[in-house]
Design a binder for these strands. Structure first.
Lengths: 230, 230, 230, 230
DNA sequence: AATGAATGAGCTTTCATTCAT
DNA sequence: AATGAATGAAAGCTCATTCAT
């Protein structure tokens, strides 16, 4: 059935070509209707992530998404209520994956700085694997603001939890508990801008240079330790 | 000429009304052709900033911009090559104003931390005066990426200049010169995210709470001083 | 089979909710295949009548009809060839009911005026019981023109039969037989417009006021008796 | 400028061909912008009337209307807010023409029956000249209900005015004033159904046969005179 | 230089119909 | 016989851009 589709029929301008490299083969595996249904839905989500990652939310039309997913435009509306619906779903679904990844990779740090280092590196590992994630995250501020706020709040809350725990262990004696929230936003901010500059800075995808993460950790450790020179 | 226009003819939905409070009076001053021409152009830029600031780049249509500027749609194309052209012009023109403002307000600091404090506060002062600027800046990453990158590079370069000068004065003995660029991005990042959280966080515009800037400066001073507890 | 359906999955907008109050219980009675089959078909017809009566032919989609009938969309095409097919079937099937009702209620009048009075009142009784009928009838002129014409011809023919019989009994000496057809259309017309004005006039359903039917009968009696004042 | 348009580009199915016989030549006459603008608007209204008259409101798409009017689809939205907008405008604009026509032709009757005869004949004259009017009027009940109700109320009110005046002149001594409204609807009804049967009955357009109008007037005169045989 | 009507490609969404299960 | 996901044509509408005036 999917084999019958002729992608050549597409009339989409290809000025911003959307890569098809990693399209899963959804029409093979599942047998039951429910399985197939899930497969198609995930396929659409995958395609939407690709498209948004490459051309942005604004240009992410149903036509482009369904073309990449190899389904008819009408099929889209069997799985999502509207264009906005899938755009709103994108960040939560990828955000969940990101948090899982970071959670797995940041186990076992014995103080905040160690934890932050692992989590920081895990974040950059994640965006190496899901290079579209970053654009999806950033543009969500305009195009899926609710999802964006929820994502930020979730991350910030996680940060706060760890900061508080370490604070209770006596780690940052120069700070007061009510200052920790601002700090959590500073740390999130930094990840983001370092990614803009060093990962995506020239249009291509690079791994974050090791010395940048070193500098980052040095600054964070100093900043949190909080000792002034005499 | 302006008198003939009947705003009531507009059929634009006014669900996101665009404020007209501060419209400059362009029909007074200039007399020569060149002056008039410049007036119209600036009027369009002003209108575009209002519109983008209130409804975002995506919804900033030529119709809305020219309506607010009180000129015909066709007139637009006498001053800008395309919609993208004016969108690309927006950030540089506001960015220049921002830099001037910060430059004026941050004169005279005698070390980097003092300079940064003044400049940090001047930034938040600026976005209090130009509340549209922040949205224009953020969405530019998607909608005017070149301008966005140039803006960032300009800010970062300024930071670097100051950091290097202070470094040469012996201020951050624990860092190496090649680490300073990363630090400049960390500082820029922090401004931005603190604005997202504390200025725009709940949909309204707030002044940055004083204790947040205190915490920020504490962290930065510790981070740059770079002394570890024994 | 009916038990498995989850109406909550429906994504149809419910702004014009379709009442489910009188849904027949189709899964009880019939046992044989033919009986069951007839049951499903009638169920679909019933659902279509509800839907057309409430939202009109244009908005009467297969999705709405099958949802109300509690069957899958595909099932529809086992019983009707196309959407148009069921729309064409609607009026004849209700028209038959209407004629039966009128026939039962108008027995025994001894002249045309008495017969007409009974039949006129029976018509309004019928549309009180089947409030959807009238909309189905009226819109059929556009959406099921053949059925509409056949319905009209059937009613007109019945009228003509009675008019002729009365004429042969000497009831309307001022008319000629070839004039009776026009009169039959005048009487049908009047029923219809009185319903538009006095039953459905303000968006709600009212019973035809008694004085309107009195006026109607007065006019008809005068008109048919045909005596001029000297 | 209109000459450049190539109607052959149309992809509309021609199963319900829309006649182009009477298209006015709007691109010749008017000189000023305002005149041209009015010309285009009237041209669109004319085209909409043709299309609705031939294929009905439901199938009257913007594509068909603009194709017949020889303008681009986008142009439509310079003159009407939406498809519904033009559909709502259709009946009032034609209804006005109809009333004017009837008013002009029915001057000078000295009693109600004479007035009604002239007006009745003028109505059928009008639909001979504007054969689309009748379908537009009838389907408006479903597709432009507000306009339809207003039209009916206007006609009914006119009727009532004349009926009352004649009543006050002692013309219908057997009726009470409050019965006149019902009578006005009966007269309107009759016109309509006689048109359905005798003008449009077989798919072609016929002139109303003279004997039908004779029978109509006979019935109306008898009905209103109101004398019973002894 | 200013105007604003005209353009048409492109958008999101709906829905009758098909068909593999 | 029943299912409901898949289809794709067609709809209404928007808007950047052009161009005759």
């Amino acid at each position: 059935m999917f084999e019958k589709l002729k992608p050549s029929q597409s009339r989409l301008p290809r000025s911003h070509p959307v890569s098809k490299s990693k399209a899963p083969n959804p029409w093979r595996a599942g047998r039951s209707r429910k399985e197939k249904s899930l497969l198609v839905r995930n396929n659409l989500l995958w395609a939407a992530a690709q498209v948004v990652g490459e051309v942005g939310y604004e240009a992410a039309s149903i036509a482009r998404i369904t073309e990449l997913a190899n389904v008819a435009q009408g099929t889209f509306y069997n799985y999502f209520e509207s264009r906005q619906d899938i755009l709103d779903t994108l960040l939560p679904s990828l955000g969940k994956k990101m948090l899982e990844h970071i959670r797995n990779k940041s186990l076992g740090g014995c103080n905040f700085a160690e934890l932050e280092e692992r989590s920081f590196l895990a974040f950059f590992e994640f965006i190496d694997n899901e290079p579209h994630f970053f654009r999806i995250l950033n543009e969500a501020e305009s195009f899926a603001p609710t999802a964006h706020k929820m994502h930020f709040d979730a991350i910030s809350e996680r940060y706060l939890r760890f900061l508080k725990r370490s604070f209770e262990n006596g780690e940052f004696p120069n700070y007061k508990p009510e200052e920790l929230e601002a700090i959590s936003f500073m740390l999130m901010a930094t990840r983001s801008y370092l990614a803009i500059r060093y990962v995506y800075g020239d249009g291509q995808h690079h791994h974050l240079p090791e010395n940048v993460s070193k500098t980052y950790m040095k600054f964070v450790r100093f900043g949190l330790e909080g000792v002034k020179r005499e």
